[in-house]
Simulated scan of single mutants.
Amino acid sequence: MSSIADNIGSVTRRIQKATLQAGRSPGSVRLLAVSKTRPAEDLREAFAAGQVAFGENYVQEALEKQEALADLPDMEWHFIGPIQSNKTRQIASSFDWVHSVDRLKIARRLNDQRGDTLPPLNICLQVNINEEESKSGCRVDQLPGLVEAVGELPNLRLRGLMAIPDPSQPEAELRASFRKLANTLKALKGDHPDAGPLDTLSMGMSGDLELAIAEGATWVRVGTALFGERPAKS
């Protein structure tokens, strides 16, 4: 049975190979370890193997892990799950990145609740790139207004876009979904040069990270390939 450290090494090599094959600069793609439902001990083991950034979906679970791992101050915490209005205060004060902002109301709450002593919160706007009824995220045509409004919020730093394309698509269609998100970011950056860095594409997971990197991903969100299959819900 592979250790978490072995798995991190394997995934890192996949990322490096895909980055090279895409003709991109080494280090231009970062690994986000999706650690939801995993015990704090697994995150500690991953950190010891060199993994720094961890993505959590559930606020209370994440806060408990942060407390358990408080002796590791260099850990980078990313919130990647759907955001409820009554959770924004905790998210704003306890995370370095939020990948799943999909409406202005949430952005404003995160901005207003980000502590004055903290640096601006890095955020990505989540896009429902395939317009699936079951998925969170805004539509592509809603992005220009949202980008303009979020760019005026001083406690947020708009980094880019996030999407979770339908993984059941044929490979060509999945790749086209990643390309659509990349082209959307490029257009937004040209039209809104002062909105934020707009340098981030959070897309790609364990099974499709190579396709995502080929189309410009800067963060790939990987859970199963690092930590193994999640236990079945009871």
Rank of each mutant, 00 (worst) to 15 (best):
Q21T: 00
N57M: 11
D74F: 00
Q60T: 07
E76N: 05
E76H: 10
P39W: 12
E56P: 01
D42N: 11
F79L: 12
I80E: 11
D74T: 12
Q51H: 08
P73V: 00
G27V: 04
P73A: 08
V29S: 08
I80R: 04
G81L: 07
A46N: 09
A33H: 08
P73M: 05
S35C: 09
D42W: 01
I80A: 09
S25N: 11
A46R: 06
H78A: 10
L63H: 03
V34I: 13
Q66G: 07
L72N: 04
D74Y: 00
K65F: 06
D71H: 05
S28V: 06
R44N: 10
S35D: 11
T19I: 06
R30F: 04
P39K: 12
I80W: 08
A49L: 07
D71P: 00
F79Q: 11
S35T: 14
P39C: 13
P73W: 04
S28T: 12
L32R: 02
T19P: 02
A53R: 11
L20E: 15
E41L: 06
D74I: 00
W77P: 01
E61H: 05
Q51N: 10
A22V: 01
K36A: 13
E67L: 13
S25F: 06
A53L: 13
M75V: 03
M75G: 03
R44P: 03
A70N: 06
R38G: 07
A48C: 01
P73F: 07
T37S: 14
R30K: 14
T37M: 11
P73L: 09
S25K: 15
E56Y: 08
G27K: 04
Y58K: 12
G50I: 05
R44W: 10
V59D: 12
G55E: 13
S25I: 02
A49S: 14
A68I: 01
S35Y: 09
V29N: 05
S28G: 09
N57C: 09
S25L: 14
R24A: 15
A40D: 14
W77T: 05
G55L: 10
G50C: 11
G50M: 12
E67K: 15
P26I: 09
Q66H: 03
H78S: 05
M75T: 00
Q21N: 15
A62D: 09
E61W: 04
R30V: 10
A49R: 07
A53G: 11
L69S: 02
R38Q: 15
I80K: 06
A62C: 12
D74H: 06
P73D: 14
W77S: 09
V59H: 05
K36T: 08
G50W: 09
T19E: 13
V29K: 04
F54K: 10
Q21F: 02
R44F: 04
